[in-house]
Amino acid sequence: MASRVTFVAAARNSPLLAERFDDDRPLDQGGWDEVRRVVPDLLPLAAADLRYCSPTPRCRATGDALGYAPLAQLALRDCDMGRWRGLTLGEAMAREPQAVDSWFADPRGTPHGGESLLSFIVRVGGWLDTRPVGDGGSVVAVAEPSVIRAALVYALNAPPATYWNLDVHPLSAVTVTGGTGRWYLRIEGVRSQPSRA
Results as ranks from 00 to 15, higher is better:
M1K: 11
M1C: 09
A2T: 15
R4P: 00
F7A: 03
V8D: 05
A11Q: 12
A11H: 10
N13I: 01
P15S: 14
L17M: 12
E19F: 06
F21M: 03
F21S: 07
F21A: 04
D22V: 08
R25D: 15
R25T: 15
L27F: 11
Q29H: 07
Q29Y: 00
R36A: 15
R37V: 13
D41T: 13
L43T: 12
L45I: 13
A46F: 05
A48E: 08
A48T: 12
A48K: 09
D49E: 14
Y52R: 11
Y52F: 15
C53R: 07
C53G: 12
P55L: 07
T56W: 08
P57V: 08
C59W: 04
T62D: 09
D64H: 13
A65T: 05
A72C: 10
L74G: 12
L76C: 07
L76S: 09
D80P: 01
D80Q: 07
M81A: 13
G82D: 00
W84H: 01
T88N: 07
L89W: 03
L89Y: 06
E91A: 14
E91R: 09
E91D: 12
A92S: 06
M93Q: 15
R95T: 08
P97F: 11
P97S: 13
Q98M: 14
Q98T: 14
A99C: 06
V100M: 14
A105L: 08
D106Y: 02
D106T: 04
R108T: 10
T110E: 05
S119K: 06
F120P: 08
F120R: 02
F120H: 11
I121N: 08
I121M: 03
I121Y: 00
V124F: 03
V124I: 14
V124D: 10
G126Y: 07
G126L: 08
W127N: 05
D129G: 04
T130C: 13
T130V: 03
R131L: 15
G134N: 05
G134S: 14
G134Q: 12
G136Y: 10
G137Q: 10
V140W: 04
V140F: 12
A143C: 15
P145L: 00
S146M: 04
V153D: 02
Y154E: 03
N157Y: 00
N157V: 01
A158H: 06
P159W: 05
T162V: 01
Y163H: 11
D167W: 12
V168R: 02
P170S: 11
P170Y: 09
L171P: 08
L171E: 06
S172F: 00
A173K: 10
V174W: 01
T175Y: 04
G179F: 05
T180H: 06
T180P: 02
T180Q: 06
R182D: 10
W183S: 04
W183K: 05
Y184R: 15
R186H: 12
I187K: 02
E188S: 14
V190P: 01
Q193G: 02
Q193H: 13
R196C: 07
A197P: 15
A197Y: 07
